[in-house]
Design a binder for these strands. Sequence first.
DNA 1: GTTGCCAAGTTAATGACAATAACTTATGTT
DNA 2: AACATAAGTTATTGTCATTAACTTGGCAAC
Lengths: 209, 209
Amino acid sequence: MVAMAETPADIRKQRYHHGDLRGALIAAAREIVNAHGADGFSLADACRVAGVSTAAPYKHFRDKNDILKELIILGMEELHESRHAALAVHGGINPAGIAAMGRNYVAFARREPGLFRLMFGLDPELKSDPKVDQVCKTCFGGVIETVGIYCATHGVSHDPRIIALELWAFVHGVAALVIDGDFDRMAPGLDTDALIDGAVPRLLHYHNR
Amino acid sequence: MVAMAETPADIRKQRYHHGDLRGALIAAAREIVNAHGADGFSLADACRVAGVSTAAPYKHFRDKNDILKELIILGMEELHESRHAALAVHGGINPAGIAAMGRNYVAFARREPGLFRLMFGLDPELKSDPKVDQVCKTCFGGVIETVGIYCATHGVSHDPRIIALELWAFVHGVAALVIDGDFDRMAPGLDTDALIDGAVPRLLHYHNR
DNA sequence: GTTGCCAAGTTAATGACAATAACTTATGTT
DNA sequence: AACATAAGTTATTGTCATTAACTTGGCAAC
């Protein structure tokens, strides 16, 4: 179902030892997850891409979930880091910067829909892992912290955690409805960046006219 | 992995013909999907619950996806109908009524997380089905229509479709983050009803002070 | 250098599941 | 009473996850 790696694997093809099978499997898994969703991902497919037998992954990962956890960690770290960049470009902690964070969140989901979906999946098994839990807290905590600073520096009296959760929910909902095609179904061609830019200021203004 | 039906199936146990296998499989699938997610659902499990062989479902459904599509249709219809009830209880088309619609949306997701997740899944195969597409449009269109009436009757000048999509995204994000445990991770014990009641009025006020 | 350890591969086997084919049983219509 | 057919069955194939038992070859100690 998935073509085997050709160009970069040719040299390794003959070798018994892969060199960096762990990395190759993670890269393959990421592509497959984004192309077919986490449900459509099979370890066997990733093995075909990497050019190894189906038993090989078990030297590097405990089981299928273990590689998915690795993907979640990678995704959370990248989302967290890209947040800083988005904020910096638009002049720091102000409404425009916070809106840029939101646009960045949605852009991430568009770029890697399968990974995004995996990161915010239902399976408690995946996110109960201590390392995954920690990276989630770091990633989401950054948003709450940023909004907290905004509220403190702009005289917003309401609980900044509540405002942060509202912003997060809104932006997360946009991302989810975009990638599953429901926004396209109801409003084809919708400019989601404009949607975010329009809504974020209203969500920031709480008891602060 | 799933216990067999006992009490109500005892009589049918001896019968060659089930009576209403289609309905029984849909009911079983719904429970399994909510308990273990759509990924954790196997047709074989549903067969064990219904007490039939694993080939039996194919007399009633084309394939596994076909029964999942049926669940999506049921879920969309129920969500659509419960929306009317929520609106009516809280005095019709006003901010309180629209907030009640939102709380109802989240309550639905809490009640049937696996079904909700299935209804808003990534797999294009499921939602490209004409009947599924139609029921989605009806369900989501109701929200847009309601917000449109609110805007018309309350002198809101901005495009009601935009406001409706913003409200939908917000409420959808709350539902998603609640059922996947991320709200609990970052804000244990959060009152999501209060969150919705707080945010909805701000999202409704667009160029309308 | 050779020896031998062990990490990183392999093949082979098991068990669950989706799907299909070929067969059987009841039901209800004529 | 006969039989057409809907609704079941068993049996089979192919895919996948996972484990066990086996090679292979790179590297470190001697």
